[in-house]
């Protein structure tokens, strides 16, 4: 009988977080507005209207909350944004 391998650490280890987390996308002077809109449509499945509104929030306010949920989910979203070249961060929704 073999010994079960030790579980790999995952970025989020909290169980059933009481406080939800949010994923923020930050403004940058490089990414095209149309591209940012498209990424929101493609990755989150948001409508074009919602994606454009979020893109304008990012542009005008410097950042926008693009999703909320568990820490694990928000970390997955932030990583996906980084894969697309957008800058995203995760934080507790205080």
């Amino acid at each position: 009988m073999s010994v079960a391998p030790a579980e790999l650490e995952s970025p989020a280890t909290e169980f059933a977080p009481a406080t939800p987390y949010i994923c923020l996308v930050w403004n940058d002077p490089i990414n095209l507005m149309s591209y940012v809109t498209y990424v929101f449509m493609q990755y989150f499945g948001y409508s074009r209207e919602k994606s454009e509104a979020l893109m304008w929030d990012v542009h005008n306010k410097g950042r926008a909350v693009v999703n909320a949920g568990s820490r694990e989910e928000m970390e997955r979203d932030a990583t996906a944004m980084h894969e697309y070249g957008l800058w995203a961060t995760v934080q507790k929704d205080d």
């Binding site: 002077p29 591209y35 070249g85």
Partner: peptide, 14 residues
Amino acid sequence: WLAFLADCRLVLGT
């Protein structure tokens, strides 16, 4: 392709 073009722009733009 999209992500690649975005990364290239980030490199040059930065």
